[in-house]
């Protein structure tokens, strides 16, 4: 019981330590323009929350993150699975994968904006294109690790394609999907911010761009930290419980 309580207390204490370091740094700097102390952000945070700007921009960013995440995960999982299973396809697509994995995010974003225009379609496409190769390469490893024994079993008993995917293949891929989703969300929201910074008129990235031009470090931190809080909530309330559920059989 105490071990459980401790494991819950550690992340909280650890984060408190980070805030303490920040507070000390702010006290040493002694310049709220350059680095405001944590408590100096409370008032601007409350203002932004009250006038609705914070929620609006958080919502826009979250919406773009969600769209790009769903697109990148679906295409990446399908492509990775296909490439891991079909050696011929893998031979053809592997060089593409290497090209796209090494294409800088900024280049993809700029090209999408240039070709499609400064729209949400371009923004979401750019983020998805950045993320798909990563998901694909993780899932390809997962597909290569599929148990040939279970494959043979599914074949002998003639398990239908859908049931095979749902009960035989996906549970084996779950750790890979979870891993890709985890690092995917973190990567995607960072790229979404860049996309918003460069070419959107809403979202956390846009607000950070604006306050960067106004040299308002406090507001930059308010927006950045608010979104980090949202992503931590997603991690703790959605990703981790889901992962626990799909791993239940391991610990049972």
């Amino acid at each position: 019981m105490s071990g459980h309580a401790e494991s819950r207390a550690v992340p909280v204490l650890s984060l408190a330590g980070l805030v303490a370091v920040w507070a000390v740094a702010a006290l040493i700097t002694h310049d709220a323009q350059l680095l405001p102390a944590p408590w100096q952000l409370v008032a601007p945070f409350a203002d932004e929350l009250r006038n609705g700007a914070l929620l609006y921009h958080l919502g826009m960013t979250l919406w773009r993150v969600a769209c790009a995440f769903v697109i990148a995960m679906s295409i990446g999982v399908a492509l990775g699975l296909a490439m891991g299973r079909l050696t011929g396809l893998n031979r053809w697509l592997d060089p593409w994968l290497v090209v796209f994995l090494n294409l800088p995010a900024l280049v993809v974003i700029v090209l999408c904006y240039l070709w499609i225009g400064l729209t949400d379609v371009a923004a979401i496409l750019a983020v998805s294109l950045n993320k798909i190769p990563f998901v694909t390469s993780v899932l390809r490893e997962g597909a290569r690790a599929l148990d040939p024994g279970l494959d043979a079993m599914a074949k002998v008993y003639g398990i239908s394609g859908r049931a095979r995917l749902r009960h035989v293949v996906l549970p084996q891929l779950a750790p890979f999907i979870a891993g890709a989703a985890r690092s995917g969300v973190a990567l995607i929201w960072k790229i979404v911010l860049v996309v918003e910074f460069l070419g959107r008129s809403s979202g956390v990235g846009f607000q950070i761009h604006m306050y960067f031009q106004l040299f308002n470090v406090g507001m930059v931190l308010v927006y950045a930290l608010s979104f980090i809080a949202v992503m931590l909530a997603v991690e703790w309330l959605i990703l981790q419980p889901w992962e626990r559920r799909v791993r239940r059989w391991r610990s049972a």
């Binding site: 043979a152 009960h167 059989w249």
Partner: peptide, 25 residues
């Protein structure tokens, strides 16, 4: 047809009952 493999080759993430019912819907 049915096959009994050298290893049991069960679906470790499904219950014993589901192991029968997934294979034989």
């Amino acid at each position: 047809r049915a096959m009994v493999f050298q290893d049991p080759t069960l679906l470790p993430w499904r219950s014993a009952l589901d192991n029968l019912r997934i294979v034989h819907p």
